[in-house]
Every structure is written in structure tokens, then in C-alpha cells.
């Protein structure tokens, strides 16, 4: 449990003894997890176990009360989602953070537009943004909507694909996904899962929060189980089963 990043170069991210309280509620009581390079790491646990809080600490939405986050061997601190992004950690939020009225390519680039021109006379480089969005999206997904269509007209799976491709598209080393298939049907879930695999093939480390044990076992290489604000157990996905994970989550089985 105490492997530090400097010792294990396989570890891309390690969060150690993270605590976070909201008023009197101790959401995290010293949780520690690690993620390995190029792997899909799953984070599971019952509601209120602290998964979301931990993820929010990693993506810069919350600042932990104590504990350290080590990224690529260096201790980092993020005060804002933007700072986390600059360190290469992208988060696909559950609500996807897409603006429905805007087109796919516009959504890709909100907040970090490509411009041409100089000084105050900057104009959007629409062509470059369209083609970049198109190639990023078609690298990942098969069922690709035209990048000029409005997000409003896309299906749930297509939206998920856009949000994931956007997160992956910034040379990010870690992509965090909060319940990416929770609202999707069987086929769309399969498509999103294939996107996650492709992401992994591209060398991106994925942190996957999911309630679906089958999915966790199918997709992930490593599983962390949270309970009561702590990461209580870790397993290689190939060496565990759904029953064991359930037992770990409920506490029926000690780590």
C-alpha cells in the first residue's frame, strides 16, 4: 500500500491519505489510491463511500484538507479544474458539460479555442478547430456525428463519445470518467466501452467510476474499493469476481 511514485515508475498517479470534510461530514478519512500507466483503474463503492469526493479532489474541483497527490513522481496541488487540466488530468463529468445549442466542434474547443491573428485582433480558426475535432472524434468512435451538427441532435452515446474525445484530445495522460454509461442502452454502452479501450490503447490512464460490476471486470485492469471515506481494498480485475467485489463494498469481507 505504501508504494510511492518515485519507487514505482509504473505508477502515474498516486493519492495518499486524502482527507476532506464538508462541515461535520468526513467524506474522505485518509483515502489512498494509485493508478498505473496505461491501465484502466476502476473505483467502486456504495453511495456515500467517498468516490465522487475523491474524484473531485483529483480533478481539481475540491481541494483536499490534507494528503498528497503525486503525478508522475511530482507532488502536485490543483486549486481549480483548469489547473488539473494543465497537468494532464481531464474529467468527463456525469452531466458531460456540453452546451446543447452549440455544435460538436464548438463544444470541443470552448474555453481553449484556436485563434489566428495577432494582438487584440484574434479571430476563431474555425477550419482548424473543425478538422481537429473531426480527427480526434473519428480516432476514437465509429458512430461519428458530423462535427457541424448541434449537440442537441445527438444521441446519448454520441454525446458521451464527444465528451470523452474532448477529454482525451488534449494530450492528457489521465482521463477520469464518472459513470460514463449510466444513462445508456446496451448498444451505446458497448460503443462507449470500445472508446474507453481505444483510449487505453493510446496509452491514456483511465479512472473509471462505475456501479456496474460486469463492466468493471470487463474493462478495468485494477479495482479500488471504497467504504466509509477510505479505499479499503484493491484487486487485480483478473483475480477477483463480482461476488468478491460486492462483499468488499458492503464490508462482509475484510480487505
Amino acid at each position: 500500500m505504501n508504494t510511492t511514485a518515485s519507487v514505482d515508475t509504473d505508477v502515474i498517479l498516486s493519492a495518499q491519505n486524502i482527507t476532506k470534510s464538508f462541515g461535520g461530514v468526513h467524506a474522505l478519512r485518509g483515502a489512498s489510491i494509485t493508478m498505473r500507466r496505461g491501465e484502466v483503474t476502476a473505483l467502486i463503492g456504495d453511495n456515500g463511500a467517498g468516490k465522487s469526493t475523491l474524484v473531485r479532489c483529483l480533478s481539481g474541483i475540491h481541494r483536499p484538507d490534507s494528503g498528497t497527490i503525486t503525478l508522475d513522481g511530482k507532488v502536485v496541488e490543483f486549486g481549480t479544474p483548469l489547473a488539473a487540466r494543465e497537468h494532464g488530468i481531464e474529467t468527463v463529468q456525469q452531466n458531460l458539460a456540453l452546451v446543447e445549442e452549440l455544435t460538436v466542434w464548438q463544444n470541443f474547443f470552448i474555453g481553449r479555442e484556436k485563434t489566428k491573428g495577432f494582438g487584440p485582433f484574434q479571430m476563431l480558426d474555425r477550419k482548424a478547430m473543425r478538422s481537429t475535432a473531426e480527427s480526434l472524434l473519428s480516432d476514437l468512435a465509429v458512430n461519428v456525428p458530423p462535427v457541424t451538427s448541434r449537440v442537441r441532435r445527438l444521441s446519448g452515446g454520441q454525446r458521451q463519445a464527444v465528451a470523452i474525445a474532448r477529454a482525451a484530445g488534449w494530450g492528457s495522460s489521465i482521463v477520469i470518467m464518472d459513470e460514463p454509461t449510466a444513462a445508456l442502452g446496451v448498444q451505446e454502452t458497448a460503443r462507449v466501452e470500445s472508446i474507453i479501450r481505444k483510449l487505453q490503447d493510446q496509452g491514456v490512464a483511465v479512472l473509471l467510476i462505475s456501479h456496474n460490476f460486469d463492466q468493471v471486470l470487463r474493462l478495468s485492469d485494477h479495482v479500488w474499493v471504497m467504504r466509509g471515506g477510505l479505499a479499503v481494498a484493491e484487486r487485480r480485475s483478473s483475480e477477483t469476481s463480482g461476488d468478491e467485489l460486492v462483499a468488499l463494498i458492503t464490508g462482509a469481507k475484510a480487505a
Binding site: 452531466n95 458539460a97 456540453l98 446543447e100 452549440l102 464548438q106 470552448i110 476563431l124 474555425r126
Partner: peptide, 28 residues
Amino acid sequence: WFVMFRTRFGLHVQAVGGSEEAAVANGV
């Protein structure tokens, strides 16, 4: 027209109107 449709600011105006939450999450 130019400011609204060809500049970063214009895109942000549309993004904030479309979904302030999403716009903010993307750093607007």
C-alpha cells in the same frame, strides 16, 4: 456579427447562454 460568430468572446456568449454550467466547467 463578427464578434458574435468569429471571436472567442462571441462563442463564450453563446456558451453561457446555452448552458452556464457547462461553459464554466470548460473554463469560461
